[in-house]
């Protein structure tokens, strides 16, 4: 037992209009694995928010999704500017997105809170000037 399926995605930071591709591919993969719809929705929302954040703030990054019998783990790693104050960033409504990003409907300050809300575990490892790695898990049992 304990078979782990790994899915790896490169998130392109230059193409904002196609952001979400990794999440959409992952959604399709989970459907093929026969995951329950509510679990797929949780993973999709959490991963999309993270993907959008990497595109908006970090110029892209990499996403790894590990599917085990116990949980689905999403690891998002970027070499962006890092998060100065994580506690502040976790507050609903706080955002550092620019006006042009806001005009597209982003920057509501809901990204990180949504990620926390739709996952069972979330850890943010961030260093200013070095990058950010976010690990999220959604329990399957």
């Amino acid at each position: 037992m304990s078979e782990v399926l790994n899915f790896h995605f490169v998130v392109n930071g230059e193409d904002f209009t196609s952001a979400g591709q990794a999440s959409m591919m992952m959604k399709r993969n989970l459907r093929q694995l026969g995951m329950p719809p509510e679990i797929i929705r949780q993973v999709s929302i959490a991963m999309y928010e993270g993907e959008i954040n990497m595109v908006i703030h970090a110029g892209g990054g990499e996403a790894d999704v590990n599917v085990t019998e116990e949980y689905i783990e999403i690891i998002l790693a970027d070499k962006g500017p890092g998060i100065k104050d994580i506690e502040q960033a976790m507050q609903e409504g706080f955002s550092t997105a620019t006006d042009s990003i806001r005009s597209l409907g982003f920057g509501a300050g809901m990204g990180l809170p949504n990620m926390k809300r739709y996952t069972d575990y979330m850890d943010i490892d961030s260093e200013v000037g070095v990058g950010t790695t976010i690990t999220m898990r959604i329990n399957l049992q």
Binding site: F16, T17, S18, A19, G20, S23, M24, K27, P37, I40, R41, S44, I45, Y48, L104, G105, F106
Partner: peptide
């Protein structure tokens, strides 16, 4: 009333 590409991803992922 949003009309950019990103509404497609939101609709797909939020189902």
């Amino acid at each position: 009333i949003m009309s950019n590409n990103n509404i497609l991803a939101v609709a797909a992922l939020a189902d």
